[in-house]
Nucleic acid binder design. Sequence first.
RNA 1: GGCCUUGUCGUCUAGCCUGGUCUAGGACAUCGCCCCUUCAAGGCGGUAACACGGGUUCGAAUCCCGUCAGGGCCA
Length: 473
Amino acid sequence: MIVRTRFAPSPTGRPHIGSIWLALFSYIWAKQNNGQFILRIDDTDQERLVAESEQEIKDVLLWFGINYDAYYKQSERLEIYHKHCLDLISSGNAYYCFCSKDRLDSLRAIQQNNHQPTKYDRYCLALADTEISSKLNSGVSKVVRLKIPDDQTTTVMDIVRGEIVFKNNLLDDSVLLKSDGYPTYHLASIVDDHLMEITHVIRAEEWLSSAPKHIILYRAFNWEVPKLAHLPLILGTDRSKLSKRHGAVAALDFRDLGYLKDAFINFLVLLGWNPKNNQEIFSLDQLIKEFSFEKMNKSGAIFDINKLDWFNHYYIQRLSIDELLQESLPFITKAKLPATDLEFVKRILTVIKDRLRKLSEFQSLANFFFALPDYEKELLPWKAMPLPRVKDRLQIILELFANVSEEEFTSQNLERLIKNLISEKSFEVGETCWPLRVALTGVKNSPGPFDVAWVLGKPETLTRIKIAIQKLS
RNA sequence: GGCCUUGUCGUCUAGCCUGGUCUAGGACAUCGCCCCUUCAAGGCGGUAACACGGGUUCGAAUCCCGUCAGGGCCA
């Protein structure tokens, strides 16, 4: 039997980290078994529908390079759910319920007061057939409820958690079909998972408590129960389920912040899965080879952006300059920097690469290459160095650099030149290098002066030194 | 409140099944030092955890019981 997994997000907002994290494992498991991965849009909650949501779900998958073998949308399958719901009613596993919201509310209030479990009291289960058909004909608002069997217990077999036993008398007769004609998650996902031949349902732990109802549904239909894997939740720093109030949780935000997809995937997967050795760096392909549910953790992991940054820095360092350029281009465009000369940009990337943690940092790390900031002349001296001496040093360097040909204007050459100068004249290193660096960058922190000079090229380097000298005059 | 579930450094985790090799290993973060013209990067080193209480055992992070704490779902 071919393994089929599905990613079944509800398009109720921007797809977030926890959701895509689940998708990753579903995909990995399917691919490990040469199986199929299905995208299903679970859009049966019409009230919470967000229009752009579906496209963004696809965009995240696209970013990750995850292809899906089939695509479904639940709102286009309403008839299927209705038909199966009717089947359930005729087999006695489900029933119509016409109870008003008021009655349900007061029922709940009474139960709560008596410290009883709050669940539907099956009032409508006792309705006579004639009564049911007359209510049906009269068009009063109705739902369909699952009839939980009176068995003692229902056992959920979970791949990562083992056997979990639930007492049936504590289970509520959940609504299967809502009054607006849309199915609930319980009905729609069970019908679809069966019809789509899903072999492994990989979903979040929050569904664990409704798992027994799902098993009861499969049995009511006389269908085989797929393998269930309830994965732990991704947590915010306060250990509660990650949500919008924890800040940036939309998966695509991380793309836009300049995280590499490989770094992001690597980081994400290690939240909850671990190879049980010290290896931390994994490509998607390696993950597909090495993943196993036995190595899945049962407890929720806190999303720690520090570690993500570290992974991203690691992956950036391993990119060639050409690859880095390709990845950086969107961010350079967004920063509105006049980066028309790609060779120039590549030089910049060469010298700032090791301090790049996120691609979006290009802007703050590199803007002085494009335009010299207007800095105060007080920034030029090294420590308590007198201004005339600063000017003197820059003058000497200017003459020295002016004599270097354009093709010899490299970082190494310039460094050698300055180091020679320093030892010949017994200058202090700081008093020579710092003013040069400030003259070229105009900022407090930057790459070294020789790297910057090489990036800038001879004419611009000389120009900037002259500007500094002018400031000191 | 009921049901379910989880519990090793601040964080991600290894070890737990198959007790001793654990004075609990790795990584991120943090701190210190080195390098050094700045900031990074890099190198080296440090601080830091078995939730608690019983029990079983010669011996428990590992097995059993209880407690506590966190989380999820329903309300």
